[in-house]
Design a protein around this nucleic acid. Structure first.
Length: 1047
RNA sequence: GGGUGAUUAGCUCAGUGGUAGAGCGCUUCGUUCACAUCGAAGAUGUCGGGGGUUCAAAUCCCUCAUCACCCACCA
């Protein structure tokens, strides 16, 4: 059955993918040669909530190219797929899903266990959307090994394989035991929408219009001081008596939690009042809090008034000052960033805070945190509502700093000056949650941290070594180091890691790996992989206390309780929801609700109940273990032994910090090995205007739509051809259409072969590699060109220069095979060389399919199947090894000569407006031996492609156009057809251009320094160019002269 | 404020020391038996400005301008 006219991608893709899967073509080790080297890529796991976007398409196309390329070359290849459980994103999706039906219970109503059931249910239903989509792209992952970062966690369906959970928990426990993980009350980025802490990286700075208010903090007891301002020369510009200190703030509502006012130690203006107390000008008048004026390096004397209010619990800079100055940090908000409504009434709390400020009392951290200093009338308000009330109250009291401003009376229209509160408007960067998009509230809470400073060094060292080796050209992929390509991204990596902050890994969510720590009633933490382990630790701990005689006291029993024994219990989940001090929910084991004291006559056995930490781990903590976790660690699996360390990580620059750096740190910390030898960082896919694709801008190109419209091969090839290292990629549909045309071109070249019986029927897969026996120059030439293409593709891919590889193939297939070889083959198809040409063409096309397969897997597999009875699918065909020995320099030179001649003739014809259909005679006016032989061997091709009507030897007749070539000259008589003036113009133009080049060459050669300093080969090349050029110029001059004689 | 990068044909971009290329677009011609999702021919560039190193610079160095991104941040 003859081939269709074009490739029907929509029809073929699904069928072909199914065939690959059916054949197990993507399985780990498929097509591996005996004893082969391994090649392993870990997919950057897409979120389980994800659907394929352009970034995925790009990222996975590049991986697929590397994987298919290695697999065809016989490597023992594994492309490990999987998905990330994506804590916040998934919890959000499921909650939203539940909310769609009002009859559903909310997450809180249903409780932790029930909710997690729902999440698992959702995952089972919708979790593999992206897998289906990756398949449409042609991704050749070993889906039988599909991994999930929550596999093996409690609640996971029994049918699911894998146990990533154990690996995560084991790492946590190990790191905890090594002191690499700690818990502490720190100021963290709090997302009030999701009510969880988030890491620095999950915070996004967004520029917003901000306001800055200026308020007066009166000095205690009405005290006054001489406020003096000086200019740069020390001249006094302002001198006045003040009874206040002026403060600027963008967050007036946090004034309620101020612990001090700070000024720079060198600031003379405030020197007289340092150490004194001032009053926070808000709250009930009779309970105004006094706070000290302190010095710290942080305030910038040249900014604002030079004095800064210090709210340690709600600002990162202030927190630092508070820590240094031992200033209490008063938390003002709850988990929703509403003003606190808990604890004692304001009057009582303020009194306590006052005695602290006066130094009469000190509070523990917990006591300080328990103190609610929000005035009663502001309690429970949203932070922004509280802000505006605070401003109103202060302004009403006359304590806002005012300025004289022109204002217009609305009724009379009269202009007058008025004192108005000073509110500066300025653009400022404000932290937002990257998922919730709400303003982040710095919040003092207990969180778990990875002490990154302790594990960062090996991760830095490994890349330093890798980059050094790369630079020195001595990169060894078996060494325990890693290179990052392009180099620029290594710089980013270094910069971040060299300035790394502790990593907050606890999240107040339910969906995720629950932290394996249990707390005793005395607050003591016990960390173990399972609760039995925690119980063991707890028993040890409490027995020790018991033996020391302090157990009763520690647990709050009266001292005369005689303790005989201890029994420890723990529950992982509970049904009772209790609120902790932050107002957030904690699932509490039901049994702890009634701790029993068991008597047994002789003494007392105390039942001690451990409560598990309700928090889960940051998603990136688990994905940081992706390389070992997917291979079965901590078990010493075959796969782990074989494929780890993996080879290449292909990823976008946006997750260098989130993921790459953490994988490096964690793999090195856990197994002391780098997770991969190479990180290839690619850029972002943008829209055709260079804008980041985003849903809100509506400029998103959906890869699935594009695949439907142009076929997966065209989409893949476009992305690859544009994947210049390190540069953003602006995608346009025109470009994709262009590469779709390329697939059609390949298809039609095959059709030509089919029509000419030039396909290799009944030839096995391995046969494809055999070099065809060719004697004709054309065939020897194209064989060499094919080898060149193969060498260039391999070299480009080895260097991760995907665009070079793609462009090489494009130029080869279209520019060489289709434009020239197929055309040359036409006249040969019914001559003596027909069989040889058919065989060569079949071979060349096979090489095209094979070489293009990693880039365009579908159409090439289809063509492979349609053009022969093959032993193997193309996906497992042997990668060509044709190399330099396939290149025939003689044939090369000859064909280049032929091509140049044809192009010359065509060009001359076009410029002389010779009708395209008109066949012209050719006259050889002069030619050397080589030229004659070349012409003779290729005459049918030249005649056909240049549209000639035979060749004769002789002198150029009058009114002929001249065609100079290397070694001789041709003429085409066009008496009466050509316009002499036009031909002269044509020749003159050519000559002019040539002369310009020649002058440049002559100038270089006449410069003695050039001849002296430039490399021999460059000088020689320049000389050759000059000789050839001068030769041609002579011919052109002669032709011009002839024309002048007749014209 | 710190960092990184970009500036090349009308557009989008390759090009890391040897005298500038591709795709798209544009102009002219063409229903030659693989392909009009095509073919042939063609036009278009002070390689952002200035300075330097070099026999030789789009390429290396300095500087200026503009733009982009990342990180941090002024209460």
């Amino acid at each position: 059955m003859p081939m269709e006219k074009t490739f029907n991608a929509a029809e073929a893709e699904e069928r072909l993918y199914a065939a690959w899967e059916m054949a197990g073509a993507f399985k780990a080790g498929a097509n591996a040669k005996p004893g082969a080297e391994t090649f392993c890529i870990m997919i950057p796991p897409p979120n389980v909530t994800g659907s394929l976007h352009m970034g995925h398409a790009f990222n996975n196309t590049l991986q697929d190219i590397l994987v298919r390329w290695h697999r065809m070359r016989g490597f023992d290849t594994l492309w490990q797929p999987g998905q990330d459980h994506a804590g916040i994103a998934t919890q959000m999706v499921v909650e939203r899903e539940l909310a769609k039906d009002k009859s559903n219970a909310t997450r809180r109503e249903m409780g932790r266990e029930k909710f997690l059931e729902k999440v698992w249910e959702w995952k089972g239903k919708s979790g593999d959307t992206i897998i289906t989509q990756l398949k449409r792209l042609g991704a050749s992952c070993d889906w039988s090994r599909n991994a999930f970062t929550m596999s093996g966690a409690p609640g996971a369906p029994a049918s699911d394989e894998g146990n990533f959970h154990d690996a995560v928990i084991k790492v946590f426990v190990d790191m905890y035991n090594k002191g690499l993980i700690y818990r502490g009350k720190r100021l963290v980025n709090w997302d009030p929408h999701f009510e969880t802490a988030i890491s620095d990286l999950e915070v996004e700075q967004i520029e917003v219009q901000g306001h800055m208010w200026h308020f007066k903090y009166p000095l205690a007891g009405g005290e006054t001081y001489e406020y003096v301002e000086k200019d740069a020369d020390g001249n006094v510009t302002l001198r006045e008596t003040r009874d206040y200190i002026s403060i600027a703030t963008t967050r007036p509502e946090t004034m309620l939690g101020d612990g001090a006012v700070a000024v720079h130690p060198s600031d003379e203006r405030y020197a007289p009042i340092v150490g004194k107390l001032c009053e926070i000008p808000v709250g009930p008048k009779e309970h105004r809090r006094l706070i000290p004026i302190i010095t710290d390096e942080y305030p910038d004397p040249s900014f604002g008034s030079g004095a800064v209010k210090i709210t340690g619990a709600h600002d990162f800079n202030d927190y630092g000052v508070a820590k240094r100055g031992n200033i209490p940090c008063y938390r003002l908000m709850d988990t929703k960033a509403h003003m606190r409504a808990d604890g004692a009434a304001y009057a009582e709390a303020a009194a306590v805070a006052m005695s602290v400020a006066r130094g009469e009392k000190t509070l523990s951290e917990a006591e300080t945190d328990a103190l609610n200093l929000v005035p009663d009338d502001l309690r429970g308000l949203d932070r922004y509502e509280a802000r505006s009330r605070v401003i109103d109250q202060i302004t009403a009291e006359g304590l806002a700093v005012t300025v004289l401003m022109k204002s217009i009376d609305k009724e009379t229209g009269a202009e007058h000056l008025e004192r108005l509160p000073l509110v500066e408007q300025n653009r400022m960067m404000q932290p937002h949650g990257d998922r919730s998009k709400v303003v982040i509230e710095p919040m003092l809470t207990d969180q778990w941290f990875v002490d990154t400073a302790k594990i960062v060094e090996p991760a830095l060292e490994a890349v330093r070594k890798g980059m050094a080796a790369q630079e020195a050209g001595q990169f060894d992929k078996t060494a325990n180091y890693t290179r990052i390509l392009p180099e620029r991204d290594a710089k980013t990596y270094f910069h971040w890691l060299e300035n790394i902050e502790p990593w907050c890994i606890s999240r107040q969510l339910w969906w995720g790996h629950q932290i394996p720590v249990w707390y005793g009633p005395d607050g003591k933490a016990f960390c173990g992989d399972v609760y039995e382990a925690a119980i063991e630790l707890a028993e040890e701990h409490y027995w020790a206390l018991h033996e020391a005689g302090t157990l009763a006291q520690t647990l709050g029993y009266s001292e005369d309780v005689r303790i005989k024994g201890i029994k420890v219990f723990a529950e992982e989940f509970g049904d009772i929801v209790r609120h902790d001090e932050m107002g957030r929910e904690r699932a509490v084991p039901v049994d702890t609700a009634h701790v029993e004291v068991l008597s047994d006559g002789d003494g007392t056995v105390i039942g001690i109940f451990l409560e598990r930490d309700p928090d889960v781990l940051d998603t990136w903590f688990s994905s940081g273990l992706w390389p070992i976790g997917t291979l079965g660690w901590p078990e010493e699996t075959e796969e782990l032994k074989k494929y780890f360390p993996t080879d290449v990580l292909v990823t976008g620059f946006d997750i260098i910090f989130f993921w790459v750096a953490r994988m490096m740190m964690m793999q090195l910390a856990v197994v002391d090995q780098v997770p991969f030898h190479t990180v290839y960082v690619h850029a972002l896919v943008r829209d055709e205007k260079g804008k980041k694709m985003s849903k809100s801008l509506g400029n998103v190109l959906d890869p699935l739509d594009l695949i439907a419209e142009y076929g997966a091969d065209a989409v893949r090839f476009t992305l690859t051809a544009m994947a210049a290292m390190g540069r953003d990629l602006k995608l346009s549909k025109d470009r994709i259409a262009g590469y779709r045309n390329f697939t059609t071109k390949l298809w039609n070249a095959t059709r030509f072969a089919e029509m000419n019986d030039a396909l290799r029927q009944h030839v096995g897969g391995t046969e494809a590699a055999r070099k065809p026996d060719a004697t004709h120059t054309v065939n020897r030439w194209i064989i060499g060109e094919t080898a060149r293409a193969r060498l260039a593709v391999d070299e480009a891919l080895a260097a991760y220069r995907f665009n070079d590889a793609a462009n090489t193939l494009y130029a080869f297939v279209w520019g060489k095979v289709c434009d020239w070889y197929v055309e040359f083959a036409k006249p040969l198809m019914d001559g003596d060389d027909a069989n040889e040409t058919r065989a060569t063409m079949a071979w060349v096309l096979d090489q095209c399919y094979i070489l293009l397969h990693p880039f365009m897997p579908f159409i090439t597999e289809e063509l492979w199947g349609q053009t022969g009875q093959r032993e193997k699918l193309l996906v497992h065909a042997d990668w060509p090894e044709c190399g330099a020995d396939f290149i025939d320099e003689t044939a090369d030179r000859e064909m280049n000569w032929v091509i140049a001649l044809i192009e010359e003739i065509r060009s001359a014809r076009a410029q002389m407006h010779v009708p395209a259909g008109l066949k012209l005679p050719l006259v050889m006016t002069a030619m050397d031996e080589k030229g004659r032989a070349a012409f003779a061997r290729n005459e049918p091709m030249i005649t056909r492609l240049a549209r000639l009507d035979g060749m004769t030897e002789g002198t150029a007749p009058k009114g002929a156009i001249t065609v100079p070539v290397e070694g001789g000259s041709f003429a085409i008589p066009l008496e009466g057809v050509i316009d002499i003036a036009e031909e002269k113009a044509r020749l003159f133009k050519t000559l002019e251009k040539l002369e310009k080049d020649l002058n440049g060459l002559r100038a270089r050669l006449s410069n003695p320094k050039f001849v002296e300093s430039a490399p021999e080969e460059i000088v020689e090349e320049t000389r050759e160019k000059l000789t050839l050029g001068e030769d041609e110029a002579a011919k052109l001059n002669a032709a011009l002269k002839r024309l002048s004689e007749i014209g």
